[in-house]
Design a protein around this nucleic acid. Sequence first.
RNA 1: GGUCCCGUAGCUCAGUUGGAUAGAGCAACAGCCUUCUAAGCUGUGGGUCGCGCGUUCGAAUCGCGCCGGGAUCACCA
Length: 596
Amino acid sequence: MFEKRLLAAAGKSIRTLYSQDFDLSRLTIEKTKKEIEGDYTLVVFPLLKLSRKNPEQTACELGEALMKELPEISTFKVIKGFLNLVLADDYWLGFLGSNFSKEDFGFSLVTRDEKVVLEYSSPNTNKPLHLGHIRNNLLGYSLSQILKATGYPVVKVNLVNDRGIHICKSMLAYARWGEGETPESSGIKGDKLIGKYYVLFDKKYKEEIKDLMEKGLTADEAALQSPLLLEAREILRKWEAHDPETVQLWKMMNGWAYKGFTETYKRLGVDFDHIYYESETYLLGKDLVLAGVENGALRQRDDGSIWIDLTSEGLDEKLLLRSDGTSVYMTQDLGTAQLRYDEYHPSQMIYVVGNEQNYHFDVLKRALLKLNKPYASRIFHLSYGMVELPEGKMKSREGTVVDADDLMEEMYSTAADMTRELGKASDFPAKEAEKLFEMIGLGALKYYILKVDPKKNMLFDPKESIDFNGNTGPFIQYTFARISSLITKAVSLQIPIVPGLPLSDYSLLPSEKETIKLLMSFPHVLQQSADELNPAIVANYVYELAKTFNQFYQEIPVLKEENPGLRQLRIRLSVFTASVIRKSLQLLGIGTPERM
RNA sequence: GGUCCCGUAGCUCAGUUGGAUAGAGCAACAGCCUUCUAAGCUGUGGGUCGCGCGUUCGAAUCGCGCCGGGAUCACCA
C-alpha cells in the first residue's frame, strides 16, 4: 500500500530534515482533490512548528526529500500548505496489470475463526411484509455479504415472532368469521390472508369499543373490557396451556404465514442459516433472571416481579419478569442471546432492528453486563431509521403501508415497460427477458434503499424509486452490461487479453487514471463498510466507479484504438471495472446483467 | 420532562473521520448518436452546511447553548 510507505518515508524525511521525531498520527495523507493536479496530498501545517518556515517552504523541502525516498513520485506541486505528490504513470499501470484479472481482488482470502451471528428480518406472523421489512432484509443480507467478503464466517439468523396476543387476534377473527377459508380456496397468499383477519379483528374491536363507550364507559375501560380482547387473551392462555384445538389452528395459520414469507424472501433474494421461532424460545431467559436475583445483580419486589435498576446509569428501572412469573420481551432476548452464544461462540452478535428499539437494546446490553455475561460487549444493535412516504409515516391501520410483494411486482413491470419503451431486449427469449426485468426492477429498489446511510430515516418516493437514470441501480447495471458486450466483442474479434503482460510507457488520460484510482480503493471501501456495518459506503462507491468509467467509455476508444498496447490497457481497465462493479453489486445483493 | 438520533441546493442524498473554491442525482435549460449499447456523456443556473458562541493555522465535521423534526421512556412486542 503506497499510503503506508509514504507515511514511513515522510517520517524518515522529517527526521533528517529537522533532526526530531514527529508523531506521524498527526500527519494526514489523503487523495488529492479532483480539480487539483496530483495523486496524494500531504498536509504540512502540523509540521510548521518543527520546520520554523512558512508552509510553502516546508512543503517544498519535504517534497524534495520524499522524491529521493520514493521512486514512484515523479514530481510534486505545492499550493499553500498542501504538498501534492504526482506519481509516475508506471505506478498505476503496474497496479492495473497485476490486479485486473484477480477474481478475488479486494476480498479476504482467509476466513477468521470468529463467527458473527447476524439477526435480521424477524417478522410477526400476523401480517405480511412491508417496506420497512424490506429495508431491514436488504440491510441484513447485504451486511452478511460484506462481512463474508472481509473474512468473517456469518450465521444469518431470523427470529420469527410466531406467538403472542397479536397472533391470537388473527386466530380469533378467523375462527369467528373465516368460514374455513384457506389460501387455496381463496387464492390469497397465506400471509396476506392472515393479515386480512388481523385487520378484521381490529375493525370489529373498534366497533365494540365504540358501542361500549356509548353505554357510558371511558375509552380505557372499554378497551380493557371488550369481549373480543378478553377472548383473544383466553386464546393466548389456552395456547400456553397447549390446548390441542388452539394449537392446531395456530399451526395451520402460521404455516400459511411461513409459506407466504418464504416466497417474499425468495424474490427479494435473502435467506437464513437458522430460523428461531419465538414459540420455542419465549420461555428462555427466566433462569438468567433468577440467577441474577441470587447473586444480587437484580432485585425482586414484594409482588414477585423482578427488575433491573439502571437509574445510576441514567436509565430507568426495567421489568425483566412479571409478578406471575411469566416472561416479557426482554426476558426472552436475554435468553436467546445466551442461546446464540452457547451455539456459536460468536465474536459479534449483530441485531438488525429499527431505531425505535434503541432503548431496548441499550437495556439488554447493560443487563447482560450486570449479569456478568462475557458476550455482553459483543452485542451490536444495527439500528436503522424509519422509511417514510411522501404523505408521512406508514400506518397499517390506515392502509398506507407499502406491501413488499406489491412493490416488487411494480418494480418488475416498470422495468419491463421501460425496457420495451427504449426498444431494448427485443431479441431476448421470453424467459431471458423476464429475468432481466426482475434483475433491473429489484436492482433499482435495492440500490435506492441501500444507498442511504442505515442509521438515517429515509424517504421512499415511489416516483423516484422507479427512476432508472442517474444515481440508481440500473445505471450501474447498465455500465456493467456495456462493458460485458465490449468484452464479448473483443473476444469475437480475437483480441487477446493476456494477464501478466507488462504495460509501460503510456501516458494515462485523466479519466483512465481516475478509474484506476477508484479501483485501487475498493479493498479499503469494503473494509470500511464492514467496520461500520454500512452497505451505503459500497453503494456510493460503486456509483462513483460507474460514473467515472462512463466518462472514460464515452470519450476514449477501446477496441477501436489502433495502438495494440493502448488497446490492451483500456481493455484491462474495462475488465477490471466490470469485475469490481459485479462484486460491489453482489455485496448489495444486486444482480449484474450481461446485456440490457 | 429525561435519554438518544437527525437538520447540507427546490426535492432525494454524499461528504474519505479536522483540510484547499462543500459535491452527486432528480427537476429546469442548452448541446452530443453514420463511430465499442444515448438506461449514456458534456455544459449552465442553484448554498447563511438550522442559529449562536467556543476550541485552532484551519470547522459541514469536535465542544457548549438555543431552534426545528423524529424515536423512546408499559407487568406491549
